[in-house]
Each structure stands twice: as C-alpha cells, then as structure tokens.
C-alpha cells in the first residue's frame, strides 16, 4: 500500500492551503481594522449631540461610510453646508430614517455565529425606545410623516445549497400601540381589482402617506406593481406596473420610483422616474445612471439617492422635475433624511 506518500501529499496540501487561508484572513482582518482609522481627504466626523428635535435648523442626517472611528454611525450636517464637519451620534445604523421626532434604525448585532439584525425605534435624542429582531438583511426603512408609524424591509434567503431564491419581508409597526405587523404579506392583495394570492408575492419599500395609508412595491410572477396600502382595512391594491421603491413627495402629489427600463443591461436596469399621481404621467429625472435605491425628497422639488462610491456609496441629488443635472451631495454616505 502507498499510504505514507498519500498522507505526505495530503499533509503538505493541508499546510499549504491552511497557510493561504490564514494569510488571506489575517490580511482581510488588517484591512477591516484600517477602516477604523480616519484617512486624509475624507469627510471627517467628531462626536456631538445629534437630535431629531424641531427648531434647530434644517439639517441632514445620514449613515456616514467614511473610514474612521465613526464609520457607519448616524451623523448630522447643516442642510446648507453638506460638506461641513459631520457631527456623530454614536448610533450605528445600516439603514436610517426619521420624521417628527421618531427615528427608525436597522442595525447589525455582531454575534459569534454571524450577525443578527434588529430594528430600533429611536426617540428625538436617538435613544432606543424599543427594538425588534429582524429575519434578514436590512434594506429599506421609513417613518410616517407624523412619526407614529415605521416600516422596514429585509432580505431573507440563502437557505439551500447554492440557493438563489431570495425574498423580502416587510413589517409595519405602530409606535403608539407597539403593534407589529411582522409580515405585510398577511394583508389581502387586490390585483387589477380582484383578490390575489401567490406564494411568490414579495413586498418592499414602504413610503407613508399618513398613519393609515402607504405605498409599497408588490412583486409577483417576475413583475412589479405600485400598490396602495390601507392599515385599517389590511389591504394592498395594485395601481400601476413597473414601479419599485416608491417615495412619496412631502405634499403627497408625486412618487419618485425606480423603473426597470427596457434595453438597459441586466445588471443595471433601473432609472429614477417621478410619477404625478393626479395626471399619472411619469417623468425621468436627469440622472442617466442606474439607481438601486429608494429615493428621498430633500425638499418639495429635489431628490436624493445613493450611487456606488469609493467608500461604498455616495449621495447624489437631482431636481424632481427632470430638469438640471445630477450633483454629488454627500461623499461616503447612505440613507439621508432632512430634519428641521
């Protein structure tokens, strides 16, 4: 038998592959550590008081992605000086939104067997009021204009060998009663006027009109719809096809959304459009790149959205009426919201 030579080969391979693995992991760990150190030429951040309280001037809150000790924290900058120093809150969020003194923060909790995620409702001083475990990776969150309702969407998936079936789970929370609708798919769906159920229904990207009504993306059979949600009636009614990640304007008359445009490459298929709810006419904005984000309204006529950047993502802005040109507003930033 030739066992000894075979074992020698195996041992050598284990040593070789093991050293390669160890080297790669150590290298990646060092790289991860270096992200905690600030680098010159990047927006700097320092600790300070960040609140959602009214009467402190218009300011922008967002997740900073610049390297340094405050990476991934919610920071604030004055709305009229977005390039100014970032005041850091010490609260880490993957996704963030706020309105009328209520903040919604989707954050990771690092555990020995991988990250778990939770949705945290924050008060006006960004202190935790209540937290809810999440079933997957955070992607969208919104707070209703009054600050009473909050919604979030997570990705769930990867549970089988080379599994490629991903799904979303969207939850809606009433912060007054703390009643949580964990899965919005429990609502009755009315598609094209008729009751509809299917195993492949996915919902994502809630935007609130008021505390009882919202808009959301409904996907089934490989297509997407804009759906109107009614909290009291527990219904979702489809309104229009090919609308993803709706974002309702502050006056409630327009919806900015991601539209899948025919002829674009499969890996960058979206353009941002604005739908006028009175005329149901849609207008493309000036941005020509594919945007995979739920846009925010920075004011009544301006949109903000994320595009990939050197530090993960940058926030860009463009007029909502299709005029003008896109402009980079915040480097190394994600999930912005304007607070006044």
């Amino acid at each position: 038998m030739t066992i000894p030579p075979r074992l020698t080969v195996l041992l050598a391979a284990v040593l070789l592959l093991g050293s390669l693995s160890a080297w790669v992991v150590v290298h990646a760990a060092a790289r991860a550590e270096s992200r905690g150190l600030p680098r010159t030429g990047e927006p700097s951040a320092g600790p300070g008081a960040v609140t959602l309280a009214a009467g402190q001037g218009r300011r922008m809150l967002f997740r900073t992605m610049a390297w340094g000790p405050h990476r991934d924290e919610v920071v604030a900058v004055p709305a009229d000086d977005p390039g100014g120093p970032r005041v850091s809150s010490g609260v880490r969020c993957l996704r963030f939104h706020a309105s009328s003194g209520t903040g919604a923060c989707l954050q990771a909790a690092h555990g020995p067997l991988g990250d778990t995620y939770r949705a945290v409702v924050l008060d006006a001083r960004l202190r935790e009021r209540r937290a809810f475990p999440l079933a997957g990776i955070p992607t969208r969150t919104r707070v209703s204009p009054s600050g009473r309702m909050a919604a979030w969407t997570v990705f769930v998936g990867g549970d089988s060998y080379a599994g490629t079936n991903f799904s979303t789970r969207t939850s809606i929370l009433d912060t007054r009663t703390w009643s949580l609708e964990e899965n919005l798919e429990a609502y009755r769906v009315l598609k094209d006027g008729r009751p509809y159920h299917a195993a492949d229904v996915n919902l994502w990207g809630v935007t609130f009109a008021d505390d009882g009504h919202f808009w959301v993306t409904l996907a089934t059979g490989g297509r997407t719809w804009l759906a109107r949600g009614d909290v009291a009636a527990r219904t979702l009614t489809t309104v229009r096809q090919n609308v993803e990640c709706p974002s309702l304007s502050p006056d409630g008359t327009r919806i900015a959304f991601k539209k899948r445009v025919a002829g674009l490459p499969e890996d960058a298929p979206w353009r941002l459009y604005v739908l006028d709810l009175r005329t149901m006419r849609e207008t493309p904005i000036a941005e020509r790149r594919s945007v995979d984000d739920q846009a925010v309204w920075l004011d009544a006529s301006t949109l903000g959205y994320a595009l990939p950047g050197d530090f993960g993502a940058d926030i860009w802005t463009a007029p909502a009426d299709g005029s003008g040109a896109p402009r980079r507003l915040l480097p190394a930033a994600l999930a912005p919201v304007v607070v006044q």
């Binding site: 991903f166 799904s167 994320a306």
Partner: peptide, 9 residues
C-alpha cells in the same frame, strides 16, 4: 450593494 430580488427567476 445589489438587490438580489429576481435572482431566483
């Protein structure tokens, strides 16, 4: 920074 939805098609 991708949306994996529609990946299962």
């Amino acid at each position: 920074g991708l949306s994996p939805l529609g990946f299962g098609v």
